[in-house]
Amino acid sequence: MQQHQLKGSLMLFFCALIWGLAFVAQSVGADHVGAFTFNGLRSLIGAVFLIPCVAFFDRLAGRPFSIWGTDNKTEQQDLITGGIVCGIVLTIASTLQQIGIGHTTVGKAGFITTLYIVIVPLFGLIVHKTVTKLQWLSVFIAAVGMYFICITENFSVNYGDMIILACACFFALHIITIERFSVLVDGVRMSLLQFAVCGILSLPAIFFYEMPSWEALDQAWLPILYAGIMSCGIAYTLQILGQKYVNVILASIILSMESVFSVFAGWLLLGEQLSLREIGGCVLVFAAILLAQMPPKQQ
């Protein structure tokens, strides 16, 4: 049992590492192509990459490959609905993130994005879910951390940070949407479909709004490829496999390490620096993230 948990924890660790490095790829990509171009192309690459992954899992299960995975019409409809809804929300979230990361540092973007873990319980109030005292405390600590990250000493607000905060809200909504449909359908297939939807929805904006030049695409192809194969394809698969062996609380804590990896990646690869004020805010946000994962006390 412990061996399985260690294996699952390592999978989630590498998933968080890949996602943390992906912030660098997104930042570099934002210097050359627009948000719809970057996310549209990486989503389509991720969808194509997941096709052999689905085939591999079907083979492990001893069944023939099928894009639907079932002959049940209701399950097929749930898969289509879940993929489309998740794809729409993911398009909004990832586009906001890509726009915002072009106006802030990789490290701050990583910490602000990971606030989705704190925001999810608040969205749960809409469907009458209980928010614990620890979760409310985590929201307060996160708010203080966000103040130090986003508000400068002369009380000006960083535009990019606010866009990333909006993106965190949509990623929280994305998590809730996935929770709704993942119990009904195959997770990897739904991921494949949502990436396909995200890519298709981005195409009109690419051709009619951004129209990247071949020179720009030549400069951005490596970050797009990394984000498509590593972030969308491999990391998501590692998350699916890892969470089979690790409980959801430990899994969330390990995955939230992407925010820490994003800071180190920004410093190591891009030479980005955070002020002491911003570092203090990141520490508070990470503390809030960990606090939000603690189970409530049993009565």
Rank of each mutant, 00 (worst) to 15 (best):
Cys232Met: 13
Phe171Asp: 04
Pro212Tyr: 01
Met211Trp: 01
Ile200Lys: 05
Gly100Ala: 11
Phe111Ile: 01
Cys232Gly: 06
Ser275Phe: 03
Tyr236Lys: 03
Val89Pro: 00
Leu17Ile: 06
Phe148Cys: 05
Lys7Ile: 10
Gly29Tyr: 04
Ala142Lys: 07
Leu96Tyr: 01
Leu173Cys: 11
Tyr159Asp: 11
Glu75Phe: 09
Gly82Arg: 09
Leu173Lys: 05
Val185Gln: 11
Ser256Gly: 04
Tyr245Thr: 01
Ala205Glu: 13
Ile206Cys: 10
Ile163Pro: 01
Ser262Cys: 06
Ala93Phe: 00
Leu217Ser: 10
Val144Asp: 08
Arg189Cys: 04
Ser213Phe: 03
Leu90Ser: 09
Lys73Val: 15
Met294Trp: 11
Thr70Arg: 10
Val24Asp: 09
Glu215Val: 14
Leu184Val: 01
Ile80Met: 15
Glu278Met: 06
Leu17Ala: 12
Ser182Asp: 09
Ile229Val: 15
Gly62Gln: 11
Trp19Gln: 05
Val127Tyr: 00
Met230Tyr: 04
Ser256His: 03
Val48Asp: 07
Val48Phe: 09
Gln243Tyr: 05
Ala292Leu: 00
Gly281Val: 03
Ala172Tyr: 00
Phe57Arg: 14
Ile163Phe: 02
Leu291Tyr: 03
Met162Gln: 08
Thr81Pro: 00
Ala220Phe: 03
Val106Ser: 12
Met294Asn: 09
Cys15Asp: 09
Ile18Met: 04
Thr95Ala: 13
Leu291His: 03
Cys53His: 03
Ala220Gly: 08
Glu153Gly: 07
Gly187Thr: 14
Tyr116Lys: 03
Ala35Asn: 09
Phe111Glu: 02
Phe123Gln: 08
Ile51Phe: 06
His4Arg: 15
Ala109Ile: 01
Gly40Ser: 10
Trp221Arg: 11
Ile253Lys: 14
Gln97Trp: 00
Gln5Tyr: 01
Val33Ser: 09
Gly102Pro: 08
His32Ala: 12
Val24Ile: 14
Gly62Ile: 02
Gly271Cys: 05
Val120Ala: 03
